[in-house]
């Protein structure tokens, strides 16, 4: 049995899953439902813009977005392996999935940092 480097990818997957599950539903609810419908008084554009300009916010946003990509990559890789029975394309799928997550993270870093 060969040693696996899945521990590395699983850490990113697990971290992304935990953070996404915790923060994304709350953020989506607040900024795409509650605020537009007037259920809560949301912050003004100027306030949000100021918050997003802060380096700490950008680092947090980058972490959340990047780890979400890796969460998707790991899950989608196994969906293709097992769900679609494409295990023979092992390397290609891994490159596409993790490569996609890395590319997405680079774009996020370029935009945010």
């Amino acid at each position: 049995m060969k040693k696996s480097n899945d521990a590395f990818w699983w850490t990113l997957f697990g971290g992304g899953g935990a953070l996404t599950a915790m923060f994304v539903p709350a953020l989506l609810f607040l900024f795409t439902i509650a605020t537009p419908l007037g259920w809560v008084e949301g912050p003004s554009y100027a306030n949000i813009a100021w918050l997003l300009m802060h380096p700490l916010t950008r680092i947090v946003a980058f972490g959340l977005i990047s780890l979400s990509f890796f969460h998707w990559a790991h899950r989608f890789r196994f969906t293709l392996y097992d769900g679609l029975q494409l295990k023979h394309l092992f390397e290609l799928i891994a490159v596409i999935c993790y490569g996609g997550a890395i590319a997405g993270s680079l774009v996020a870093a370029y935009v945010l940092l």
Binding site: M1, K2, K3, S4, D6, A7, F78, D82
Partner: peptide
């Protein structure tokens, strides 16, 4: 068990 036939096979 920390290999492709152990814990990391579980999805």
């Amino acid at each position: 068990l920390s290999n492709d036939e152990g814990i990391w096979s579980c999805t």
